[in-house]
């Protein structure tokens, strides 16, 4: 049931739409300097998807400095770990705004604690001094994943009816945007996906075995009204 896809000449990267405003130089640099195909999509979970298994989040050095952001970051990364096999964080030096004298970076104990926790959690950490350098790092990561045969191969945003189907796949918990796109391209219909075996799902969506098992379980999950959260009548979608 899997349609073979021609290996693409240059690797492709999916960028979250919020990055258009927060990292415009990263995206334009990826396209113009490194010649990569960058597709901007509403990813929601991560800032960039670099391969079928690797997600990259861009964080500013200042965000790791104070305990205020800790919860937000840990929730975000925990969610990512449910969706992706590999996670990378690029710690970018904050931009000095015009008129602002270069701020001295004060290393806090909290900062070291966050780094230690990330290391222990197996999150890969890269450091970048500016958006251009971040783009170069993303390119290196994409090439590395390309060599390991994990590169994203379908980047085209689907049209018309396929859009609705993509939106259906995206509502499945712990399924990445890349995997949802793969499902759209590899399977003729949702019914074909629902009737597929675990190995067929893993091959078609390019998922790891446990992830394919989770998807398989979800599609066959027997709905139990008892387990719905209580206020049923009040619409929470």
């Amino acid at each position: 049931s899997r349609i073979p896809v021609q290996p693409s000449p240059s690797p492709c990267i999916l960028a979250d739409s919020r990055e258009i405003s927060s990292g415009p130089a990263v995206i334009s640099c990826l396209r113009a300097v490194h010649g990569l195909r960058v597709q901007v999509c509403p990813l929601g979970t991560s800032d960039y998807i670099v391969s079928n298994r690797l997600a990259v989040d861009r964080v500013f050095q200042s965000e790791l400095q104070s305990p205020g952001n800790r919860n937000k970051l840990s929730q975000r990364l925990q969610r990512l770990q449910g969706v992706f096999e590999r996670i990378c964080v690029i710690v970018e030096t904050d931009r000095v705004r015009p008129g602002e004298t270069s701020r001295l970076f004060q290393r806090t104990q909290h900062y070291d604690g966050v780094l230690s926790a990330l290391v222990q959690a197996g999150v890969r950490i890269l450091f970048s001094s500016c958006q251009e350098e971040t783009a170069a790092l993303l390119k290196d990561l994409a090439l590395l994943e390309h060599r390991k045969d994990a590169a994203l191969q379908v980047a085209t945003e689907p049209e018309g009816h396929q859009r609705d189907i993509l939106s259906f796949y995206l509502s499945i918990p712990n399924l990445s945007y890349g995997a949802a796109l793969n499902l759209c391209h590899s399977f003729g219909s949702i019914t074909a996906v629902a009737n597929s075996s675990v190995p067929a799902l893993a091959a078609g969506a390019r998922l790891s075995r446990p992830q394919a098992e989770e998807l398989h379980r979800f599609l066959r999950h027997d709905f139990d009204f008892q387990l719905l959260p209580e206020p049923l009548s009040k619409g929470k979608s």
Binding site: V123, F223, D224
Partner: peptide
């Protein structure tokens, strides 16, 4: 804080959301 705890919430709300798509 960065290690994911296993066992997510029940699948029911997610199944319901998917069908609504």
């Amino acid at each position: 804080p960065f290690v994911r705890r296993q066992r997510g919430p029940p699948a029911e709300p997610a199944v319901l959301r998917a069908v609504q798509r």
